[in-house]
Design a protein around this nucleic acid. Structure first.
Lengths: 166, 166
DNA sequence: GTTTTTACGTCAGTCATGTTGACTTATATG
DNA sequence: CATATAAGTCAACATGACTGACGTAAAAAC
């Protein structure tokens, strides 16, 4: 019995975990690389993409909700969001219940850019899903969910994130 | 039949793909967040972590191989790597066949730091793998591999990356 | 109705990490 | 010898993050 698995069951586990680390690194690198390349031509960067994505995904989102998702400071967001509003990608209107809030949504220009950028990423995911098959996709989702910290896991439950009571 | 799936099969697919995008975003955010937090105390950042990780993973790696993995410029790497060498985390020795090369490996200090940083990430992956089960892990790997661009996929085949003939 | 908290904005300075471009050195290889 | 390659270096710059301090308007609490 010279099988590594048998002699040292920890070796394979270590290798398995390192592969997991690297899968995440390479997948994320390539996943973001494509839109980054597109953005590079315009005067925008990855930070703008993230804002456009999440505003498009949650029309009427507030600034602080966005900050919570991105986990950056308001000063960092401010610059990026300010540009996007100034260039007409993102529109804002005051909240109805709470007029201090700025509810954000994409303008037509923003919708178009969002589609352009996310299209590539969707295609990449669609390709990977198709090749891997439905069962693999289920496994992928389970593992990815387990990698995410508790507070944000609920975003992926069937009824969406549980809004905290006001 | 008012089931969305039946009425508009594209809707669910779109939602499915967007979930994939977000799983990647949140998983990567939380996955890197922990080591980033640790590094923040020292005078090091995520870039140093990446270098330490891949040097530890491939002892004797050359500078250009490292550049190929990280996909950054030699000037960017130079700053980070220079610090790590100066601080004694990484050791270098000239190549034997080709003395222009600097073969990189971790010093004892580097090994310790690598363990400290990667430990958390391994634990996170191990937890997610354990909760999800072996079958899910297989699916996770399949999908992740499909997300990675061709040239780097071979890193994950059983015999490792195919080295180009010298 | 006054006080306090909240949502958001802003100014100013800094740091980490990436980029391009130009030039150098040492070594390997035709 | 000529050329290509591996790596280093100097300089300038862009992006996206950070901290800290302060301001304003609206909501909520007392």
């Amino acid at each position: 019995m010279t099988d590594v698995k048998t002699v040292n069951p920890l070796f394979l586990r270590e290798e398995e975990l390192r592969q997991g680390i690297e899968l995440l690194f390479f997948a994320y690198r390539d996943f973001t690389g494509e839109p980054d390349g597109l953005l590079a031509g315009m005067e925008l960067g990855r930070a703008h993409h993230r804002v456009i994505y999440f505003v498009g995904r949650h029309p009427g989102i507030t600034v602080s909700e966005l900050l919570g998702i991105l986990r950056i400071t308001k000063q960092s967001l401010s610059r990026v969001l300010g540009q996007l509003v100034a260039e007409g990608y993102v529109a804002q209107r005051p909240g109805e219940r709470d007029r201090r809030q700025r509810l954000l949504e994409l303008g037509p220009k923003g919708i178009e850019l969002e589609r352009l950028l996310t299209e590539r990423q969707r295609a990449r995911i669609a390709g990977a899903y198709r090749e891997a098959g439905a069962e693999a996709v289920e496994g992928f989702r389970k593992v990815m969910l387990g990698l995410i910290d508790e507070p944000d896991r609920t975003r992926f439950s069937p009824r969406g994130p549980s809004r905290r009571a006001p």
